[in-house]
Nucleic acid binder design. Structure first.
Lengths: 147, 147
DNA sequence: GCGCTAATTGCAATATTATTGCATTTAGCC
DNA sequence: GGCTAAATGCAATAATATTGCAATTAGCGC
């Protein structure tokens, strides 16, 4: 919920402004990662003007607080869907419909850390994005009479 | 080695041109990911002019053949260091010195696939970049008398 | 080595994405 | 309501990326 994000912003001493609320709303309603200019365009359709520089700055802030994430494989931003979860947040992106699922798993982090340790590397943060078919698209790809 | 890449290009019917060899050489000598314009700049220092559009196209080709990879967290390109390895190629980027280590591990892929399956997702490709301290920088951070 | 042709590169224009400094506005406080 | 730091808008510009078309070149047969 957007309210959670707003509470976090307040708790850290950041002001709750119109542009910040509007960016949160747009991201909340999005089905896929949005670029800063996507966000600006969607807001404009609602008659709300926000300068793109402002959107960049808002996204920088949100990402630093983990309220949003930047999805590197598509270059867009998404609202964090699992704010409470421990472990690095990971994405699965459907290569057909673009749908994005976020998850976190501490065991995967441990597996990666262990592997890195063997190479002398001390991991602080994991970036992980998988592409493949989501449940829906996979079902369709098996034909209408599927399983 | 560059020769390996050249052999792969030839085997697939691509011509061995000056720009392609030069881009390979620059990437081979690099200690960190390079942007297309970085590459152009380095070549220019050697008195070799290659148009940036050409470099973009060469990198597209190389990446499609897995001769190079795009490192998303830094936005640059690196020559593939483990061309023969099975499994998705992964990176560890040192957050202090920028050094990059490439590796692949089929078990990590299986772990990720298993997890995705549980969420109904059928993975085709993994993108994985970790950041942390490389062996060298970690040693230094423990002080000169460190282990 | 010479010419031929498809593949490749260069060029020019333009689109997209991102950043900076400074003036203006506004949220949250009294 | 007025005050002030924080946030936004604006304008300029930088950095990154793409397109269509003309010019060049690698690799082929001879």
């Amino acid at each position: 919920m957007i309210q959670d994000s707003i509470r976090i912003l307040q708790a850290r001493g950041y002001k709750i402004t119109q542009p910040r609320k509007q960016v949160l709303e747009v991201l909340q309603g999005a089905q896929k990662p949005l670029s800063p200019y996507d966000i600006q365009g969607l807001l404009q359709k609602q008659g709300k003007y926000v300068n793109h520089v402002t959107i960049y700055r808002i996204l920088d802030l949100f990402c630093s607080l983990n309220l949003t994430h930047r999805v590197l494989s598509s270059g867009g931003f998404v609202k964090c869907a699992i704010e409470s979860k421990e472990g690095c947040h990971r994405f699965m992106v459907c290569s057909r419909c673009g749908a994005l699922q976020e998850f976190a798993d501490e065991e995967l982090c441990r597996d990666e850390n262990r592997f890195a340790q063997n190479l002398g590397f001390h991991t602080e943060y994991h970036l992980s994005e998988s592409s493949g078919l989501c449940a829906n698209c996979h079902k369709k790809s098996e034909g209408p009479e599927g399983v």
